[in-house]
Amino acid sequence: MLQFSKFVAVRASLAVLTLLLVSFIVFTLMELVPGDCAERYLSFKNSQGAVITPADIQAERVRLGLDQPYVKRWAFWVANAFRGEFGDSCILRLNISQLLGQKFWLSLGLCLSALVLAYAIAIPVGILAATSKNALLNNSLRLVSYLGLALPNFLLALMIMLFSTIWFGESLTGLFSKEFRDAAWNWDRVKDFLGHAWLPIFILGWSATAFAIQTVRALMSDEIGKLYVTAAAARGVSGRRLLMRYPARHALAPIINSLGFDLNRIFNELPVVALILTLTEAGSLLIEALARSNDQQLAGAIIFLLTGSIVTINFVTDILLAVTDPRVRRSIVGG
């Protein structure tokens, strides 16, 4: 048990280290964008009729601490970030924590739901596809998953919106109906949210499912042919019991390992889908901040939070794997 705690402690510190490293990269990228927050802030002041001189910009840099050495500013930024404090958005001029608020959790919720949806479908279907000899089933599964891989998400979203507009007179945008947009959370608002959230979850989930089916199928196909499976079969284990106890268990380990990676891939696709569906969550804010308004502070905060989520999931899956996979467990706790 002591060794297990040691393992958890090592993993946790590695996770924190990763996060620190990524935050440094994110911070560096933010620095590389031309024009700093002082300039942007003052051009807003300029809109209030103020005359801006280079000296003003310099003074503002000092006020915002932008004249401090690079590493010192990073340390300050990351220390605040760990406390959930990201300062003000340069362009929107609002406190980032207040601005992001529940938006990041909405985004994470959408992505995790898409991930759950993907594996809820992919694991049984992938196993079935690997074991079934039915050509029709195999080919149609392949077609669906290739479509999922090949069809860009934004196109899928636009197509669904267009069809819905033509046939149902509803453009299916947003995460809430008008009456619930500014309401406090209650059961009706949750229902309203779910009534809107299925579409992005479905769109994000489809390509994720397609990808996951291919992975599960390939892993299963690999495992099924191995000697230990043949040996188990020879001892009289058969059918579902054989599949679940031996190859499926082994095939699933790499999948648990890659959950963090999958989440990242889904989150990467979220901004484009969110933009098309006018979802008001962190993904659309991120693309707005990165691509359109160069709002480094905001983009940095969102990327930091996303990285934090992925690192956390990786940490959890590592622990999970250690608990579920006897080989890993033994390598940690011995015996």
């Binding site: 942007r40 051009s43 300029n46 809109s47």
Partner: peptide, 10 residues
């Protein structure tokens, strides 16, 4: 528009 305006005035 916001980005355009601030870049123009900067």
């Amino acid at each position: 528009t916001d980005e355009f305006r601030s870049a123009m005035s900067a």
